[in-house]
């Protein structure tokens, strides 16, 4: 078993190593600091990591703030719209339209109302995170099983209680998908908004590196972003498995049976 695992890991390394070698070969052929290979990037990571970690802190903080604002506002709103069918039907095309509007396109407008400070960036991040959240929550609560409604009625739950005790838990699996998408887009837009409304953060760091022709330094920062993204994705996945175990268990038994 152990030997088999080791062999699997070794064969799994072939593709990444091949990609790194190909990149390094391309960099040697280009022979300019404007096209660094993985080796130069590794050196830059070694040199710059304290700065990068500090700057990423700002970026993550804003991403988190925007995400929380979006989650607190949009999950209840989505459930409410799913309940109020007529309003929901009218708002639905509007949501579809907003969903197609790329978050960075909102930047110029937000800039007018909120300037270029932290608030403006958090607003943009919240907008980006809000779209997947409200769409998933609304879809889930709209498509609830009729039986759930009848249970609520026979228990004489009030509207608010129904939303809290029936709609919310039943929609959770789809809300979790929305949360995952929202976290990804919050991170993404956090970096983008920094680059367009420069003050601090990893996006600005990357731009400074570019202005000083330090391409390897910029790629080092990108490597940090990608590792952090990977860690956050895994974390979310683990939390989802822990909190939504009932959903996974039932869907697993379905596929088995």
């Amino acid at each position: 078993m152990k030997a088999g695992l080791g062999k699997g890991a070794a064969s799994g390394l072939i593709v990444p190593v091949a990609i790194l070698l190909a990149w390094q070969a391309l960099a040697w052929r280009a022979g300019t600091p404007l096209f660094p290979g993985p080796w130069q990037v590794a050196l830059s990571i070694w040199k710059l990591w304290p700065v990068i970690v500090g700057q990423i802190g700002y970026t993550l903080m804003r991403a988190f703030a925007g995400f929380v604002v979006a989650a607190v506002l949009m999950i209840p709103l989505g459930i409410l719209l799913g309940r109020l069918k007529t309003v929901g039907r009218l708002v639905e095309p509007m949501m579809d339209m907003l969903a197609t509007l790329p978050p960075p396109a909102v930047v110029p407008i937000v800039m007018l109302f909120a300037g270029t400070g932290d608030i403006a960036k958090i607003v943009i991040i919240a907008y980006a995170a809000a779209v997947p959240l409200i769409m998933n929550t609304y879809e889930a609560s709209k498509g609830l099983h009729v039986m759930a409604n009848q249970v609520a009625r026979s228990l004489r739950l009030t509207r608010l209680e129904t939303m809290l005790h029936i709609d919310l838990p039943a929609s959770l699996p789809m809300i979790a998908t929305g949360l995952r998408l929202a976290i990804a887009s919050a991170l993404l837009v956090s970096v983008t908004s920094e680059m367009l409304l420069a003050t601090n953060g990893i996006g600005v760091f990357i731009q400074r590196q570019q202005e000083n022709f330090q391409i390897a330094g910029g790629l080092a920062a990108i490597a940090f972003i990608s590792v952090i993204g990977l860690i956050i994705n895994n974390l979310v996945f683990q939390l989802e498995k822990r909190w939504l175990f009932w959903h996974y268990r039932s869907s697993e038994s379905h596929s088995d049976g």
């Binding site: 960075p104 990804a184 991170l187 993404l188 837009v189 970096v191 983008t192 680059m195 990893i202 996006g203 990357i206 731009q207 590196q209 570019q210 391409i215 910029g218 790629l219 920062a221 990108i222 972003i225 990608s226 590792v227 952090i228 993204g229 990977l230 956050i232 994705n233």
Partner: peptide, 13 residues
């Protein structure tokens, strides 16, 4: 590893 990289970060490089 590549998937979480924001497109904005790639543009300057």
């Amino acid at each position: 590893l590549i998937q979480p990289i924001p497109p904005a970060a790639l543009v300057p490089m």
